[in-house]
């Protein structure tokens, strides 16, 4: 091939490659990670619910589930329904999701990810409820059932019983999805115990991958 022809081809090729590479380039980032859990009352910033543009907040009173057992019924194994005092509405849309006396539990986590990764909900409970004089009732005397108004099983958290220590309640809090349920707590009343007010505090944790 003639040398001039070789030069012509190579110049033309470089011209076309240069034109093909023209573009303006924009880099886009990923979504931010976030995790949210409300157990019981909770609070939010402002009046608007989250579907209406409201914002999260941290705080609120620790909700209480309680029952008073009549003296004649103590230890007779007749289960005693406990009454919770938290708000009954979902902060997502203010829908009344819980029945009176139930405790609301709901949350989500945000994660940009292609895998179907889940967050895990755990609860940590002491071994016993304790009264002022040190008498105890095993925490396993308290169980719960899950439901939600308008919701159908399976619920995000299955029915269960406190065992003391850390126990896993759900391993399927799917990313980018709102999960919520309501708990009805029950005192199983299987043992005769000394009179008094017995307390225990349980702590829920939503752990993300």
């Amino acid at each position: 091939m003639h040398p001039t022809r070789i030069a012509q081809y190579s110049l033309l090729c470089s011209l076309l490659v240069s034109l093909d590479a023209i573009a303006y380039v924009v880099n886009i980032g990923t979504g931010t990670r976030a995790v949210y859990l409300r157990v019981g009352d909770g609070i939010r910033a402002g009046a608007a619910n989250y579907a209406g543009g409201g914002a999260m907040a941290t705080g609120g009173a620790v909700s209480l589930a309680q029952v008073t057992v009549a003296a004649a019924a103590v230890g007779n194994s007749a289960e005693q329904a406990m009454t919770g005092n938290g708000r009954l509405t979902s902060d997502y849309d203010d829908f009344t999701f819980c029945e009176a006396g139930q405790i609301y539990i709901g949350g989500f986590f945000r994660l940009p990810n292609t895998a179907n990764q889940n967050a895990t909900l755990r609860v940590n409970a002491p071994a016993n409820l304790v009264n002022a004089t040190g008498d105890t009732i095993p925490i396993s005397q308290i169980r719960w059932s899950s439901s939600g108004i308008g919701d159908v099983p399976p619920h995000p958290i299955a029915d269960g019983t406190f065992t003391g220590g850390t126990q896993t309640l759900a391993t399927d809090f799917l990313r980018n999805t709102w999960r919520e349920t309501c708990h009805s707590f029950v005192y199983r009343n299987q043992a005769i115990v000394a009179a008094g007010t017995y307390n225990a505090r349980v702590v829920y944790t939503l752990a993300t991958p």
Partner: peptide
Amino acid sequence: TVAMQWQDFFPKRHSSSLLIG
């Protein structure tokens, strides 16, 4: 870099994951 935001920071009860920027 364009900071992408969740269109709905609070996800719906069914998965919602649209990012906007």
